[in-house]
């Protein structure tokens, strides 16, 4: 790790990934990957199944430990931190399948993600004051769940669970938001509403999105990174990568 870490220098980027590698029993799921994300940039990662897209997000947010390389968030090394420390540094992650607290209500789900009282005693003596309530209701409104704020989260439809999870991220107010297939499994209307929601919430932060829907990608992306077999195949604007012959061959062609 030391060689790669030495290579990583301080930058103006929000996120600087350099030489990132992870291998599972010799199989390199992510192989010497480097890319940079600007302030307020929306970066979309595309690629065929098994290209290592989700693994990259796992590596950034600390769910999987890197074998080699460096991930710097605002020049802070993340590869040595635990998941909760990375979250507290300002990185939020949405999972592919909606991952919410089904035994709690919508309100409690959002409240739990409110960034205060995060240690044991802070949580024990956490006070549900007006500020918290207002913030939770405001967030619920933003993700169209105000009507169902008292409902148990397991009663929500699939699409609304996705929104709730986005809301849970918003209330954390992360500087870098990572979304893994945010519109997968949604109806057409829900898709449009989600796209609209994403446009609103991405305005003042950097975002990394994994997505398959090329139309959706073209709509939101500043930059697109195409991954294949753990490596970067192409990078650039949506228009540019769409015309890249290598990309057409491995991904868009079929």
């Amino acid at each position: 790790m030391s060689a790669a870490t030495a290579r990583a220098t301080n930058t103006d980027f929000v996120l600087a990934v350099e030489g990132l590698t992870v291998s599972f029993e010799g199989f390199k799921a992510v192989d010497d990957l480097s890319f940079y994300v600007d302030e307020k940039e929306i970066r979309v990662i595309i690629g065929p199944n098994g290209a290592g897209k989700t693994t990259v997000l796992d590596l950034i947010c600390g769910r999987t430990k890197a074998t080699e390389g460096s991930v710097k968030f605002r020049n802070k090394e993340l590869t040595t931190l635990n998941e909760h420390e990375i979250v507290r540094a300002g990185v939020g992650r949405k999972f592919q399948t909606p991952s919410i607290y089904e035994d709690l209500t919508v309100f409690e789900n959002l409240e739990l993600c409110y960034p205060r009282g995060r240690n044991v005693f802070g949580a024990l003596f956490f006070k549900r004051d007006q500020k918290v309530i207002n913030k939770v209701r405001e967030t619920a409104e933003m993700v169209n769940l105000l009507d169902q704020i008292e409902d148990s989260a397991d009663l929500l439809s699939h699409g609304k669970k996705q929104w709730l999870e986005i809301g849970m991220l918003l209330i954390q107010d992360p500087a870098l938001l990572m979304l893994d297939e945010p519109v997968a499994g949604m109806s057409v209307t829900e898709r449009q509403q989600t796209a609209e929601l994403l446009r609103r919430i991405t305005a003042d932060r950097s975002v990394i999105v994994i997505e398959h829907d090329m139309q959706f990608v073209a709509e939101i992306a500043d930059h697109v990174t195409v991954m294949h077999q753990g490596k970067i195949l192409a990078e650039g604007t949506a228009e540019k990568v769409k015309q890249d012959p290598k990309v057409i061959e491995v991904y868009l062609g079929h």
């Binding site: 769910r63 909760h84 507290r88 992650r93 991952s99 035994d103 739990l112 995060r118 240690n119 954390q172």
Partner: peptide, 13 residues
Amino acid sequence: RGQEDRVRFSGYD
């Protein structure tokens, strides 16, 4: 109890 991983990603140890 249900979503241990998710709790980590809500910022809790």
